[in-house]
Amino acid sequence: MFTIFRFTFREFFTRKVLLVSLIMAAVFLGLYWTGVFYAVRDIEKAQNQMLASVIYPQLLLFGLYFGSFIVSFLAILSSAGIISSEVESGVIQAVIPKPVSRSEIVLGKFLGQGVFLAAYAALLFAAIYAIIYTKTGMKLTGSGEAALLFSLQPVVLMSVTFLLSVLTTTVASGMVAFMLYAVAVVGGVIEQIGWFMNNLSLKNAGIVSSLIMPVDSLYRKIVHVMLPPASNPMSAVQQMGPFGSSAEPSLWMVTYAALYILAFLGLSLYYFAEKDI
């Protein structure tokens, strides 16, 4: 299994995936830093503490939300062909007859891919955190827990995309994974609106979408971990809008996300073991 794990991990460094990912992150962080820099400069100039306490958290949420976008896109793009592209090209025909079990191949690829994505997400989170902390001086809580949750997001998406890659073609698995991600994002926004309007149907729609794809719930949990409402009288204002989180997802939702990953890993192991190449 470690041979496949090392190889999958190494593949990121040798192929263009890492370079493209780094360019994506650099462009995003560059724009983000520029936005934060000018916003903070103007607010400091105006010496408006009220504005600062509303805008600074919004800047953080904006960074985390679009940072999540980037790691999610990377998770889907890099996982859509993890098995299917090797089946389509025939590369896997030279690997399976070797003395490695199919479960070793799946576990090695899953871990290699998962560790890379989690590490990438953690670094992106650290960069966003550093920009916000150095520019605004905001005191943020639970950054360690938030970093873990942030790193879990691409792994959740990867686990679904991995199974799709076992079952279908690269194009089909990428498309379905993007659709599922869209369900999560739209569901998350609908739930936010539901809480804002106190509409049960919209809230339920959001909960169902979180069960289908729990990645957005993890983001909302991060928001609550970093901006806990109990210690903040401005909380209601800060949590408004699509990037906020009006209701904190429970710990069960995080547990659900972890079980979700394990379930999709189990299904990938089962279906790959049965697959005719």
Partner: peptide, 15 residues
């Protein structure tokens, strides 16, 4: 799986 250490396989159109 063990016996595969003693087996070589060249697929058609090696990729």
């Amino acid at each position: 799986i063990g016996v595969r250490r003693k087996i070589g396989y060249l697929p058609e159109n090696f990729s």
